[in-house]
């Protein structure tokens, strides 16, 4: 079995209030991502999916702090690395795509220059060469007329194009791990389908592992091989995608799947009422007591 690319062990994270009071936000989160694997994290707002990804990137801001646990990337603990080294890793070996591309792009600089910056900073190339590579990177994410588009500012592009620019930037240095935090939530359905296909194809071609964060179970199902369900800071269930959807074992996962209006679920006789999670789970506080983590198959979750 191959060694995992990212190995998060018993990660605890919390907000320190004053001297002694401590609010735990992540409780013993443990999961592994194999090289080249697409791993999905689902859960509602506030379940801790995004702070998990920020912890991996080393981007946690002050009152938030990791209290215990390890984040091993290629066997090395990221939490004990100095800031300088993290800065070299971020964008280079671990890259991230955010939900809202408009706020993640610099409005004062052309997109070509912003992509070129990646090559200059991480690969020590000259600006001239980097800008040529940036045009190539835009072509790779199937932006039409890449040489003309490279001279555009973010506000001159549509939401779908901006998200492609983000992907081009994230994949510029061929990272080992791509973290995608709700990358398609702000997009139209057809654009969403195109962007998802792009992420899937590019990462498969380059062997990039993906940590995909979303609250949309349909999006997760179409892209990930393995899924973890988060609730209130706990990973309550983890399984292969198909097994999770066909045989959800945790009460919360069952609620989440029942709450989803599905295509073809309505018949001429009438519709099934959507499951209201609160109606099937009497006491939410007991939810995190049970966890179902399915063991990985002998192939180690490789695609």
């Amino acid at each position: 079995m191959t060694a995992p690319l990212l190995d998060i062990r018993n990660l605890r994270l919390g907000v320190a209030l004053g001297r002694s009071v401590h609010h735990p936000l992540l409780k013993d989160v443990t999961f592994q991502i194999m090289p080249g694997e697409a791993y999905g994290l689902v859960g509602e707002s506030g379940s801790g999916k995004s702070i998990t990804s920020l912890a991996v990137m080393g981007l946690l801001k002050k009152p938030l702090a990791v209290t215990s646990g390890e984040i091993l990337f290629k066997g090395q603990n990221l939490l004990s690395r100095p800031k300088r080294e993290m800065r070299r890793l971020r964008g280079n070996r671990i890259a991230m795509i955010f939900q809202e591309p408009m706020t993640a792009l610099n409005p004062l600089s052309t997109v070509g220059r912003q992509i070129a910056e990646m090559f200059v900073l991480h690969q020590g190339r000259s600006w001239g060469e980097a800008e040529r590579l940036a045009v190539e990177a835009l072509g790779n994410v199937r932006v039409p007329n890449p040489d003309r588009r490279a001279k555009n500012y973010p506000h001159q592009m549509s939401g779908g194009l901006r998200q492609r620019v983000m992907i081009a930037m994230a994949l510029a240095c061929n990272p080992d791990l791509l973290i995608a935090d709700e990358p398609t939530t702000a997009l139209d359905v057809t654009v969403q389908a195109e962007v998802l296909r792009l992420i899937k194809e590019l990462c498969a071609a380059r062997g990039t592992a993906v940590l995909f964060i979303s609250h949309d179970l349909g999006v997760i199902a179409s892209i990930c091989q393995r899924v973890g369900v988060m609730y209130a800071g706990c990973l309550v269930e983890e399984n292969e995608t198909r097994a999770l959807f066909e045989n959800p074992r945790h009460a919360y996962t069952r609620g989440l799947l029942g709450a989803l209006p599905r295509l073809g679920s309505r018949s001429a006789h009438g519709r099934q009422r959507l499951v209201d999670i609160d109606s099937i789970i009497a006491d939410r506080s007991t939810l995190t007591e049970t966890r179902f983590i399915a063991p990985r198959g002998p192939e180690g979750g490789q695609p």
């Binding site: 359905v189 057809t190 969403q192 179970l217 199902a221 179409s222 198909r242 959807f245 295509l263």
Partner: peptide, 28 residues
């Protein structure tokens, strides 16, 4: 009617819209 649109979508654009829905059953 909803059944006509979802069971026998005819216009290419309608088909494209329906095909673009991220639906777990369709994905699997």
């Amino acid at each position: 009617g909803w059944r006509q649109i979802f069971e026998t979508p005819t216009h290419p654009y309608t088909r494209r819209l329906i095909a673009a829905i991220p639906d777990p059953d369709a994905a699997l």
